[in-house]
């Protein structure tokens, strides 16, 4: 009898003990685990020249001002390149969690560009685990330079070029993100027979955060041999991202002039390691047009 009682007391006291130890475990067991999407792989939508795996958030308009100056090795007379600048102005808008659209105008070949970027896969943990993000990017550009040669008729279609890219990115840790961007550039018309209409390339990008609001970025775009003329080179860039509230400042050193894929992938000049380096910056300023409930912010 006493033994009976003793066992009962033991059982109950153990129940109390486990019950009071962690109350939440009572409901966490059958709690549906959530899928947590990894956020902020990059500070903004560009690594430097390359599109990053980030999109502008839905309802957010990103006004981008980008400059690339002349080669630093032009010396003091050209104020180390700052006398010459190439500009792209862009307006880019997030439409959904996955889709963004952008328009821009570059002084490089007086080009208008329009693009779409769509997140096919998003890096996540929790219920659904996805080790990397994958985005698809497509753009069309129109060169609007005046035709200087009256003997040649330039068709509208000859002014068009396209870029297609897949962006594989992974945030390896809070501080380190890397991406691979297989790229296809198609130009309807090329200048010389040395150049192919279709150019295949592989872009590499990486960033390392050195503070909560500061990161170092680097990128390199490898054009597979035999597709572009000899004077063209591969794009190499290194820079910093500085974030201050609604702005992101990207300051960099690069050998690229153009800020559209066609230019910095297939028509890039300058030997980075021979000192043909330009200073450049991208400034991003975001405005919230509508919030996640579809309302205009106050």
């Amino acid at each position: 009898m006493t033994r009976f009682l003793f066992v009962f007391v033991l059982v109950f006291s153990s129940m109390i003990a486990s019950g009071q130890d962690d109350l939440l475990s009572l409901i966490e067991d059958d709690e549906e685990e959530e899928t947590l999407f990894t956020s902020a792989l990059w500070k903004t939508t560009r690594v430097i020249n390359l599109q990053s795996s980030e999109n502008v958030a839905p309802g957010t308009l990103d006004f981008r001002i980008s400059h690339r100056f002349g080669f630093v090795n032009q010396g003091a007379y050209e104020f180390f390149g700052l006398d010459n600048s190439t500009i792209r102005l862009g307006l880019e808008l997030g439409l959904t969690d996955r889709l963004m659209v952008g328009f821009g105008r570059s002084s490089f070949q007086k080009t208008f560009d329009g693009f779409l970027k769509y997140k096919l896969l998003r890096q996540s943990s929790g219920k659904k685990t996805m080790p990397f993000s994958l985005s698809a990017f497509g753009s069309m550009t129109i060169n609007t330079l005046k035709n200087e040669d009256p003997d040649i008729e330039v068709l509208f279609t000859s002014r068009l070029a396209y870029a297609f890219q897949l962006i594989f990115a992974r945030k390896f840790s809070t501080g380190f993100t890397a991406q691979l961007s297989p790229t296809l550039i198609h130009r309807n018309l090329v200048e010389t027979t040395d150049e192919k209409n279709d150019v295949f390339a592989l872009g590499f990008g990486a960033r390392h955060k050195i503070g909560k609001r500061l990161a170092i970025n680097a990128e390199y775009i490898h054009v597979f041999p035999g597709q572009i003329a000899d004077q063209y080179t591969n794009s190499i860039s290194i820079g910093v991202d500085i974030e201050t509230g609604g702005h992101v400042f990207q300051l960099h050193l690069t050998n690229s002039t153009a800020m559209i894929e066609k230019g910095f992938v297939a028509e890039n000049t300058g030997e980075f390691f021979k000192g043909d380096i330009r200073f450049g910056f991208n400034i991003s300023r975001v405005f919230t047009l509508w919030d996640h409930k579809g309302k205009q912010p106050k």
Binding site: L24, L26, S39, A57, V286
Partner: peptide, 29 residues
């Protein structure tokens, strides 16, 4: 999530920081 044991008076809560929704996406980030 919250569990409250009315016998002992013990109460526990937990919340995922990432589940906070802000007006502006950038604030959330």
């Amino acid at each position: 999530i919250c569990v409250w044991d009315t016998e002992s008076g013990a109460i526990e809560m937990a919340i995922l920081i990432k589940s906070f929704k802000f007006e502006k996406a950038l604030m959330e980030e």
